[in-house]
């Protein structure tokens, strides 16, 4: 499966306007102990310009989606939906918003399971949890591929709503939901100049790319 991280250059690996898919392998290592309750993030102060979260991202909608897929969702993801405070600490970046869909999209092929779209950008960017039938998950990034299917009416004639993520314009972008939130937090913080981002973390990010060069 294709791997990549879609974001701007942060003025570190590219310029601020250079929004594209960057190498996943070259992303700096994670320097914080990530926990399913997001305690690491809740320690941060609430941001005035935080990422927008639709009211439809509610626990009641989430548990129904969980039952529909018959798969237990990752604890970190459920905790995230449960606690609005977490999203208040993630800086607004790339025009992303958190949301929950009306339904999950089935996937076929080597990665059969479900895609649960939880984030959308202004220009058709979509971030989804991929869930396999055993409940294992990772995060993928699509571009105007998944939401279109959600909107389509059920049809027998045109075929079921399903997707082979290996054949589509979909990229693996994080090994877990936790990792994705960390990544979007740190890159958003660098990009939006979040004053609460510890300096050593920013330095570490910059140094990583400098070493690569």
């Amino acid at each position: 499966m294709k791997k990549g991280w879609f974001f701007n250059g942060l003025g570190i690996r590219g310029n601020f306007y250079d929004t594209k898919i960057y190498s996943y392998e070259e992303l700096p290592p994670i320097k914080i102990d990530l926990d399913d309750d997001f305690e690491w993030l809740l320690k941060q102060p609430e941001l005035k310009e935080h990422i927008y979260r639709y009211p439809n991202m509610s626990l009641s909608r989430l548990i129904e989606l969980e039952a529909q897929t018959n798969i237990k969702f990752p604890k970190a993801f459920v905790n995230f939906v449960k606690n609005w405070e977490i999203s208040y600490r993630i800086p607004k970046a790339m025009g992303y918003q958190f949301l929950l869909p009306k339904e999950c999209i089935k996937t076929i092929g080597n990665y059969s399971g479900f895609l649960l779209r939880f984030m959308a950008g202004d220009y058709g960017e979509e971030v989804c949890l991929y869930l396999d039938k055993t409940g294992q998950h990772f995060v993928v990034q699509g571009f105007s591929t998944i939401a279109i299917l959600e909107d389509k009416e059920t049809s027998f004639f045109y075929g079921e709503k399903q997707l082979d993520i290996e054949k589509e314009n979909v990229y693996f972008c994080a090994t877990s939901f936790n990792e994705f939130i960390y990544r979007i937090w740190i890159e958003g913080s660098i990009c939006e100049k979040n004053e609460y981002l510890p300096n050593w973390l920013k330095q570490d990010y910059t140094n990583h790319y400098l070493t690569l060069k």
């Binding site: 009641s60 548990i63 129904e64 969980e66 039952a67 237990k72």
Partner: peptide, 8 residues
């Protein structure tokens, strides 16, 4: 039940 939706 394992699933909250079933409990609800």
């Amino acid at each position: 039940d394992d699933f909250d939706y079933v409990c609800v």
